[in-house]
Nucleic acid binder design. Structure first.
Lengths: 339, 339
DNA sequence: ATGAAAGCGCTAACAC
DNA sequence: GTGTTAGCGCTTTCAT
């Protein structure tokens, strides 16, 4: 095995405890002893065994993050933000992906708890009923990310999804569109909230809410493009098709646009389309996509900061819900090409 | 704290050791006792404390994966594959991102070793000199992913990058292009190999290798689009500009195409462009992008399988280098629109 | 088939 | 300031 505290202690003729104290910056150590220990630590390139430290202290200095799917750049960026945020507090991130499967998510929660993470950040893919709460019967604090869970009054960091829906829809309305559709998801809070924002915007602008203009599909996260394409083709079958569409995410929007173009319908002249998420490539698509930016990285950093503050036992003046403001990014798919 | 083996043992009036044996599927336990233990384990929803187990046994049943940047979907998919592969062997993945910074990568290696991972998978961003080898003086086995390191005869799973360069360039040649450029990266093996493949293809087809047609830039992974754009504009300044370009990756290709279109140059009629990586959105770009698919997920699964086989002490008949075959995906940016 | 003893590398009291 | 004594929850030997 690697070098242990005991080795250093013996080398220096001090006790193991003294070494331990130096390594944890305890003050009750002589200045000289401290120097010698640190010196030797560097010489031997000593690294404390975190398993042992964790077992003995009950703290692992690691934080678990579970996301529904790493391949979504939103979550990848979220993870990046969390990782960066934790690094500042010299905590480590242990990252797990649930592959959009609630059961896998439960398992990952159990695993991470068994590994002794000090806190858990979860962008959950639980579908409502959830056996979620009991899993967290443990004393480990946790924070929900991105998606809220019904009936669970937990700490939360995410987008203001109602705001996102409102901003997107407002944008379409201000462009003069009157017959605005929504292609959205099911169940998860992000879907529900964006739909609500859409509704709010319509109402605030005295436009009627027509349920035939709302197409809701499940699994919109995974198969966005196909779903968007299909949903749009349904909308085109309406007696009076929409002149604008607010899509749940960018992939759905890509699918919708594809469907429109295939049908020789111009974007945005005939139908304006806006997505949500601001994928890196959105700008370079066949029709550069208008969208809502959610600052995922910033969300991650905020979540990390919140977690660290909870762990430091700092009296929380922090709010339980941190909502990041959505930002409109207007591109060709709504405002047309600016020549 | 949570429920421990001791609790179960006391409940059942057996010894802690017996419980331990049952949980690790040891055979020297009475069938009846085993049943009772398992029963109680389920009732209490017992989960072994992995820190303790790891400390006592020297194995953590976890494997570390370090990638240069999670936001690259290539690495996200790689991670997904690894995760899936490990799950089969009931190992857990601990994922870390080095943010393309060699120093951070070194730290992550140290951290993961300190956490007791049983093996390390590294898609390294070391820039050559590396203090890499010594870090791995530990007995922990490791596998390099995606990028090879000079002078390091390690296990490796990755793309056949020479093949990728050859396939891409061959494709352009067979399209009748004679003056083929390459926009590539620096230092890392993937860049070097793809360039070599490009060269090989030229030679094999009796085309001259012209160094003015090769533009090499650093940080091509992070700022692909801008780099591609800029590199392409340099190529356009040549006395005789290229009629085709093989780009290091899809983002570089996106940038190159953008530059071409901005200059009213048609793709692919005037200049054909091919990338590498097959990003999910490549198909939906302004000009659907021809590219080389690298099956990142499959690579991840293979890496996981290799790691597991190494840990199981299975006599390795496995090769030290596993190269995944690159696949050509021809789209509009080279073959034009098929009406 | 079962269990007692020792110990993994560290931290947390509490002495001195 | 420094060291001693007990564990943390588990696995490992080795008796029985």
């Amino acid at each position: 095995m690697a070098v242990r505290m005991k080795d250093i202690a013996e080398d220096l003729g001090v006790s193991l405890v003294t070494v331990s104290k130096v390594l944890r910056n305890k003050t009750d150590v002589g200045e000289n002893t401290r120097k010698r220990v640190l010196q030797r630590v560097r010489e031997l390139n000593y690294q404390p065994n975190m398993l042992a430290r964790g077992l003995a202290s009950g703290k692992s200095y690691s934080i678990g993050l579970i996301v529904p799917d790493l391949v979504h750049t939103f979550f990848a960026e979220l993870a990046k933000g969390v990782s960066a945020g934790l690094r500042k507090g010299s905590y480590q991130l242990i990252l797990a992906s649930a592959e959009e499967e609630p059961e896998l998510e439960r398992q990952e929660i159990v695993h991470l708890l068994a590994r002794g993470v000090d806190a858990l950040l979860i962008a959950s893919c639980q579908n409502g009923k959830s056996g979620f709460k009991q899993l967290l019967g443990s004393k480990t604090p946790y924070i929900l990310l991105d998606r809220q869970l019904p009936k669970l009054d937990a700490f939360f960091v995410g987008t203001d999804d109602i705001g996102a829906g409102r901003v997107a829809t407002d944008h379409l309305i201000h462009l003069g569109r009157k017959h605005i559709a929504h292609i959205g998801g099911e169940q998860v809070s992000t879907s529900v909230d964006r739909l609500n924002g859409y509704r709010e915007a319509l109402t605030a602008n005295n436009l009627p809410f027509r349920k035939e203009l709302v197409v809701v599909r499940s699994r919109v996260e995974e198969a966005g493009i196909q779903i968007g394409e299909h949903a749009m083709s349904d909308l085109l079958k309406l007696r009076r098709p929409p002149d604008a569409v607010f899509c749940y995410n960018d992939l759905t929007a890509v699918g919708a646009i594809r469907c429109l173009l295939n049908n020789k319908i111009r974007v945005p002249e005939d139908v304006a389309v806006i997505g949500c998420g601001n994928l890196r490539l959105s700008m370079y698509l066949e029709v550069p996509l208008s969208t809502i930016d959610q600052s995922p990285q910033q969300q991650g950093e905020q979540a990390a900061a919140l977690a660290l503050s909870m762990l430091s036992g700092e009296p929380r003046r922090r709010a339980k819900h941190l909502l990041v403001e959505p930002k409109l990014i207007a591109r060709d798919s709504t405002v047309g090409r600016i020549e």
